[in-house]
């Protein structure tokens, strides 16, 4: 260890000024943990989807009936 120390001596400037330029960097938005859904919410969404499906099917059926008549 002592040999290594003698090979690389640290340099500490005793004179002069040390200047650090503070560059403003752009910020990234942070990683987003996704919130888990509660059972109620899942059920509501499922019911909602099912309802929309039935309405949609009904509308399609209605349209077809119009076309055939």
């Amino acid at each position: 260890m002592a040999e290594v120390k003698s090979m690389f001596r640290e340099v500490l400037p005793k004179q002069g000024q040390l200047s650090v330029e503070d560059v403003t960097t752009m910020v990234l938005c942070k990683p987003k943990l996704l919130p888990l859904k509660s059972l109620t919410l899942e059920k509501l969404e499922k019911m909602h989807e099912a309802a929309q499906d039935t309405i949609h099917q009904q509308e399609v059926a209605e349209k077809e009936r119009h076309i055939t008549h």
Binding site: K32, P35, L36
Partner: peptide, 20 residues
């Protein structure tokens, strides 16, 4: 700066309920 917020200014939560 670390935790994202919702538009109401609250930190986003770990769990989503109908009222959150």
């Amino acid at each position: 700066a670390v935790r994202p917020v919702t538009q109401a200014g609250r930190p986003i939560t770990g769990f989503l309920r109908p009222s959150t």
